[in-house]
């Protein structure tokens, strides 16, 4: 037997090696870690109370005592921003996770049930996709009522139909793939094929997508709170803080600036880390 000659395809192997995290990724990861601390144990970063009012200290510009200034009720904006991390992060994370789970069930059932079930489930997704995600979220808030949990469910429902389509498309690709056909050809039972091949190869790319969507979910959750449908004042949620601060823009720009800035930084950090995760997994899941 002649020895195997490594053909040129293997020279491209570096393409599949995982990219190292650059400074942007490290910085983002550090920020996310800090936010996580703020969410779990805000007192570590800001000792004061986020809701204690002090009319004498109202609308103070940022200085050494009040790093981000104070709002119209004299609450320390920095403290509120730190304590707010909990709400924004949890709405975004819970909504993304719930949306992924709904979509996974929805898309997999569509891909694996017959032509009729597939048609019904996917047309339903199409119908919901015909509505703007925000409008869909508003409809859900009508049912659940205002509040943090309502907003979370609303965001989850808003992202589910789009994800369901992705899950179904990916599951169809996997279903028709050579390895599933090979498993059929070996006489492997269907449930086992679903469990071994279809599910993991569908979940993998979905998780990556989820990481990237997390940023958008945080943003949408804050938008609902801003519109008065999510977290209610005096909860120091970033979106809700903007609503409260909006009336004082001409006197006190800092009330609106810092919560929003935190929001932007959070979403950027999540996206950067998410893209990095995507790049890392590309070699594995690219067709």
């Amino acid at each position: 037997m002649t020895t195997e000659q490594v053909d040129p395809a293997s020279r491209q192997r570096p393409r599949f090696s995982r990219p190292l995290p650059g400074p942007a990724v490290l910085l983002s990861a550090a920020l996310l870690a800090l936010l996580l601390v703020a969410a779990v144990h805000p007192a570590l970063l800001a000792a004061g109370s986020p809701t204690d009012t002090d009319p004498l200290q109202a609308l103070q510009a940022p200085d050494a005592a009040h790093l981000f200034g104070t709002d119209q009720l004299g609450r320390d904006v920095f403290t509120r921003v730190v304590h707010g991390a909990r709400y924004s992060l949890s709405i975004g994370a819970a909504a993304t996770a719930a949306g992924l789970v709904i979509a996974l069930v929805w898309g997999l059932v569509a891909a694996l049930s017959g032509r009729f079930g597939d048609a019904v489930l996917m047309r339903a997704a199409d119908a919901l996709l015909a509505l703007p995600a925000l409008l869909l979220a508003l409809l859900v808030v009508l049912i659940t009522g205002k509040g943090v949990s309502g907003a979370t469910i609303a965001v989850a429902v808003g992202i589910a139909p789009g994800f369901a389509r992705v899950v179904r498309a990916q599951a169809m690709v996997v279903r028709r793939s050579g390895y599933v056909e090979s498993a059929i050809g070996l006489g492997v039972r269907r449930p086992l094929i679903v469990l071994r091949h279809v599910l993991p190869n569908t979940v993998g790319p979905l998780l990556v997508l989820g990481t990237i969507t997390l940023g958008a979910s945080i943003s949408t959750g804050a938008a609902l709170s801003y519109l008065g449908l999510g977290a209610q004042p005096p909860t120091p949620e970033w979106g809700a803080m903007l609503t409260e601060g909006q009336g004082f823009l001409h006197q006190a720009w800092w009330i609106a600036l810092f919560p929003g800035l935190m929001l932007v930084c959070t979403v950027v950090a999540v996206t950067v880390v998410g893209r990095h995760a995507q790049a890392r997994s590309e070699g594995r899941y690219a067709s």
């Binding site: 940023g215 943003s219 804050a222 938008a223 801003y226 979106g239 903007l242 909006q246 823009l249 609106a256 600036l257 919560p259 929003g260 929001l263 932007v264 979403v267 950027v268 996206t271 950067v272």
Partner: peptide
């Protein structure tokens, strides 16, 4: 990246 990550309500306010 920054603009995409900026919620439109905050962008408007700013």
């Amino acid at each position: 990246l920054v603009v995409v990550s900026t919620p439109s309500f905050w962008l408007g306010i700013m």
